[in-house]
């Protein structure tokens, strides 16, 4: 293990503060301690009192009750190194409670924060990544991006039968059946078939042929339904114009 980076800190003892979190982040913090993720191999240990702690793991959008406890915990810590890690969207900027009157919205409004770990809740791997950064084992991988893409928009190319409006109709129709995650893959596939065919009959045959070759019965259903819908729509369009 010669190439392994040397940690900045050794055996950081951590105290976990729940500053009005929904317990999602707290459960993920507990997950990090299980043998599967095992944060103790870096010397990170959860301690029962802030007087023994080097670092705080704060989760939750700090509300008016929690801020009293949070301040007392921070003052009870030894003066060095007093590291604070904000875990989860609420601890960083208030999460979905950011505009609530009962909430301060962010740990950094109360005490200085050394590392922000986004996620709602963050995955155990994300917490490991954050703690690894704190210890100096890994470097950050994100940086601010401000883009000026210009005024030209990327135009999709359609064949003889199709146009922008039909594409959008088909897109929303597919979303109703398969949801937005699988939609994109199916849509790409269907577009290829539509753009390569010249007549409505040919298109219909091609889609039914494709559907019959699929193994998954759910996909077969979706392809045949979407195929019927496209054919109907194109017939309407050509009939009107």
């Amino acid at each position: 293990m010669g190439g392994r980076p040397r940690p900045r800190f050794r055996s950081v003892w951590v105290f976990h503060v729940d500053a009005s979190a929904c317990n999602g982040c707290d459960i993920e913090v507990l997950d990090v301690l299980t043998p599967f993720y095992d944060v103790e191999r870096f010397g990170v240990k959860l301690v029962p009192t802030p007087r023994q702690a080097d670092a705080l793991l704060v989760s939750g959008s700090v509300n008016r009750q929690a801020v009293i406890g949070l301040k007392r915990v921070y003052e009870a810590m030894p003066p060095k190194p007093r590291i604070v890690a904000a875990v989860g969207a609420c601890a960083i900027a208030g999460g979905i409670f950011y505009d609530s009157l009962a909430v301060y919205g962010g740990v950094d409004k109360i005490i200085p924060v050394h590392i922000y770990i986004p996620g709602c809740p963050p995955r155990p791997e994300a917490i490991l990544f954050g703690l690894g950064q704190l210890l100096g084992l890994v470097n950050k991988k994100i940086e601010p991006r401000i883009l000026y893409p210009g005024r030209r928009v990327l135009d999709r190319k359609y064949g003889v039968l199709f146009n922008e409006r039909l594409y959008k109709d088909l897109r929303y129709y597919l979303t109703r059946y398969v949801g937005y995650y699988d939609r994109d893959y199916i849509l790409d596939d269907l577009l290829e078939i539509i753009n390569s065919s010249r007549t409505v009959e040919e298109l219909r045959e091609k889609i039914m042929d494709k559907a019959s070759r699929l193994k998954d019965p759910r996909l077969r259903e979706v392809y045949s339904i979407a195929g019927g819908y496209i054919v109907e729509k194109i017939r309407e369009e050509t009939g009107a114009v």
Partner: peptide
């Protein structure tokens, strides 16, 4: 998104010591 422009990637390694790193901005004319 009507254009399919915004997509959730599978990147989760976003922990950072500075809050400014967490900004992504697109400026359109």
């Amino acid at each position: 998104c009507p254009e399919g422009a915004i997509v959730l990637t599978n990147i989760f390694e976003m922990a950072t010591p500075s809050k400014d790193d967490l900004i992504y901005e697109v400026n359109l004319e």
